Amino acid sequence: MPARFDVVANTTLPQGDPLRLAHQIRQDMWRKLQKVRGFSPVVQLTREGDVIRVEAGGRVAAPVAPGLSGEIADLLACPAHRARWVAQATRSGRRL
């Protein structure tokens, strides 16, 4: 089934292991939005030069609540989360 973004936010992060990076972001997004009815998180990574472009969001079964994209954007902008994601993504030698 192809990924569907009913709601989405974007950011860029330094290069690192894409699987670790996607897993960490998806996990934190799920924790933050697990009470949103029918939410299924999706993370898509694309290499753009020296950085990785992150599209995070997902499928929502119910009508999308106002501000949901903003909540995801806040998560992606959180310095503590970003530092942990980058640290985890650089633990492995794989690069996107």
Rank of each mutant, 00 (worst) to 15 (best):
L75W: 04
P14Y: 01
E55C: 13
A61N: 10
G16S: 04
D74Q: 14
S69R: 02
I72A: 03
T90D: 10
G93L: 12
V51K: 09
R47C: 14
T90Y: 05
V64S: 04
Q44W: 03
I52W: 07
W30L: 14
P63E: 11
D50L: 06
R95I: 12
G93N: 10
W30G: 13
R20Q: 15
Q34I: 06
C78N: 11
L76Y: 02
P79F: 12
R47I: 11
H23G: 15
T11P: 05
I52K: 00
D6S: 00
D74A: 15
C78D: 14
K32F: 05
V60W: 06
V60S: 06
D28N: 15
A22W: 06
N10Y: 13
L45S: 08
V42G: 03
A77G: 12
T11M: 01
R31M: 09
L21S: 05
R94P: 00
R94S: 05
R59M: 12
P14I: 01
H23E: 14
V8L: 13
D6A: 01
D6W: 01
A87I: 09
A87C: 04
R26A: 07
G93T: 11
R37M: 04
V54Q: 00
R82F: 01
D74W: 13
R84T: 09
L13Q: 07
L13S: 09
P14C: 03
P79R: 12
A73W: 00
A87Q: 09
K35A: 15
L21Q: 09
A87G: 11
G70L: 05
R53M: 06
G49T: 06
A65F: 03
E71T: 06
A3W: 01
E55Q: 14
A65L: 10
Q44G: 08
G67C: 06
A77K: 09
L45C: 15
A3C: 04
I72R: 10
A77M: 07
V54W: 00
R26Y: 05
D74S: 13
G58A: 06
G49W: 09
I52V: 15
S92Y: 02
A3L: 09
G58P: 12
I25L: 15
G93E: 11
T90W: 09
P63H: 02
T46A: 15
P18V: 06
V51A: 13
Q24M: 14
S92P: 00
R53C: 13
G16N: 10
R84Y: 10
P63I: 09
S69C: 02
A83V: 08
G93I: 08
Q15C: 05
S92T: 08
T11K: 02
R26L: 02
D6I: 01
D6R: 00
S40G: 10
L19M: 06
E71G: 07
I72P: 08
R37A: 14
R20E: 11
